[in-house]
Computed example of a mutant assay.
Amino acid sequence: MTVSEVTSAPQDTRKPSFWYGLPLGYVSLDLHPPAERLMGIVNQLRGLPDQERDEADRALRLYAGIVSLLNTNRVQECALGVHPDDAGGFTTSVFTVSTMLTAGNSAKLVVAGLAGSAADGRDEGMRPLDLPCGIGFLSEKRSPAPRSSRRPEAGDAAPSHIWQGTVAVAAPSTPELIVLQMVTPNLDSADAYRDILLGIARTLTFANPARAAADNEDKEPEALTGAAAAMRNDFG
């Protein structure tokens, strides 16, 4: 597995940038599609036959609704994953990165408290993490899969449960948590997807890797450290 890209959350005056490695097999959903692209799609839809136009219009409206929902929930990244399984088929997952505000400037205190409750066994579904970027925690659970109220006939083919893994880390000098989440309907592959989630979490950094690489360009090659080492170790 190799790093396919290093992603930065959009910058503004409130929060710092952060970067992480996204492994192969994941395709990012465009959460900020330009108006020109959307208008181009609409114009293409107008030229389709009636049935195809209706189906494409529903898909476009679904995409717009998902993007709106993700943006409302401060999601910075949504990536769809497809990987081969041992049975010769494919297993799917959804990976998201979001930011969550905490009261005051207590993000580190929130993470420390949750990690502490995980460490002493008060919450069996959580465990503390010592990541290169700081202290965090891992939470995982199995939940009933959501059902579509618009297409109840699809319920029989849909999975009954999903596995959900969440890693949270406090952003430096801000009241925000960086939340990495992996969801898959393939419960048998939960261990593999937990490893992928933890691998991504170990590459999370608040220092621009490109700037660090530029600073080291004229130096003699040496052992990788920090985020660069994490990416090499976890993604090859």
Results as ranks from 00 to 15, higher is better:
residue 1 M to H: 10
residue 3 V to N: 08
residue 4 S to R: 09
residue 6 V to C: 12
residue 8 S to F: 04
residue 8 S to L: 02
residue 9 A to S: 15
residue 12 D to A: 11
residue 14 R to K: 12
residue 14 R to W: 09
residue 21 G to V: 03
residue 23 P to F: 06
residue 24 L to G: 10
residue 25 G to V: 05
residue 26 Y to D: 03
residue 28 S to V: 06
residue 33 P to T: 05
residue 36 E to I: 10
residue 37 R to I: 10
residue 37 R to F: 15
residue 39 M to C: 07
residue 41 I to P: 06
residue 41 I to S: 09
residue 42 V to H: 12
residue 43 N to Y: 06
residue 44 Q to I: 02
residue 45 L to T: 07
residue 46 R to H: 10
residue 47 G to Y: 02
residue 48 L to H: 06
residue 49 P to H: 01
residue 50 D to S: 08
residue 53 R to Q: 11
residue 53 R to T: 05
residue 56 A to F: 03
residue 59 A to P: 02
residue 59 A to N: 10
residue 60 L to R: 15
residue 63 Y to D: 08
residue 63 Y to V: 02
residue 63 Y to F: 10
residue 65 G to A: 09
residue 65 G to E: 07
residue 73 N to R: 06
residue 74 R to P: 00
residue 77 E to A: 05
residue 79 A to E: 04
residue 81 G to E: 00
residue 83 H to R: 15
residue 85 D to L: 06
residue 86 D to V: 12
residue 87 A to T: 11
residue 88 G to R: 10
residue 95 F to R: 01
residue 100 M to A: 09
residue 105 N to L: 11
residue 106 S to P: 00
residue 106 S to V: 11
residue 106 S to L: 15
residue 107 A to I: 05
residue 109 L to I: 09
residue 111 V to M: 03
residue 112 A to K: 13
residue 112 A to T: 13
residue 113 G to C: 01
residue 114 L to D: 03
residue 115 A to G: 00
residue 116 G to Y: 04
residue 117 S to E: 14
residue 120 D to R: 15
residue 120 D to H: 15
residue 127 R to T: 01
residue 127 R to Y: 02
residue 128 P to W: 12
residue 128 P to D: 05
residue 131 L to H: 02
residue 131 L to A: 01
residue 132 P to L: 08
residue 135 I to W: 10
residue 135 I to Y: 10
residue 143 S to Y: 13
residue 143 S to W: 14
residue 143 S to M: 14
residue 144 P to N: 00
residue 146 P to S: 09
residue 152 P to T: 06
residue 153 E to F: 09
residue 158 A to S: 14
residue 163 W to F: 12
residue 163 W to A: 07
residue 165 G to W: 01
residue 165 G to E: 00
residue 167 V to E: 02
residue 168 A to P: 00
residue 172 P to M: 06
residue 175 P to D: 03
residue 175 P to A: 08
residue 182 M to K: 01
residue 183 V to F: 09
residue 185 P to D: 11
residue 188 D to E: 12
residue 188 D to T: 09
residue 193 Y to N: 00
residue 193 Y to L: 03
residue 196 I to L: 15
residue 197 L to E: 04
residue 200 I to E: 02
residue 202 R to P: 00
residue 205 T to C: 06
residue 205 T to H: 03
residue 211 R to T: 12
residue 211 R to L: 15
residue 211 R to G: 11
residue 214 A to F: 14
residue 214 A to G: 07
residue 215 D to P: 02
residue 216 N to A: 15
residue 216 N to W: 13
residue 216 N to M: 13
residue 216 N to E: 14
residue 217 E to H: 09
residue 219 K to V: 08
residue 220 E to M: 08
residue 222 E to N: 10
residue 223 A to C: 08
residue 224 L to N: 01
residue 224 L to C: 03
residue 226 G to S: 07
residue 227 A to S: 13
residue 227 A to E: 00
residue 230 A to G: 12
residue 231 M to I: 10
residue 233 N to V: 02
residue 236 G to S: 11
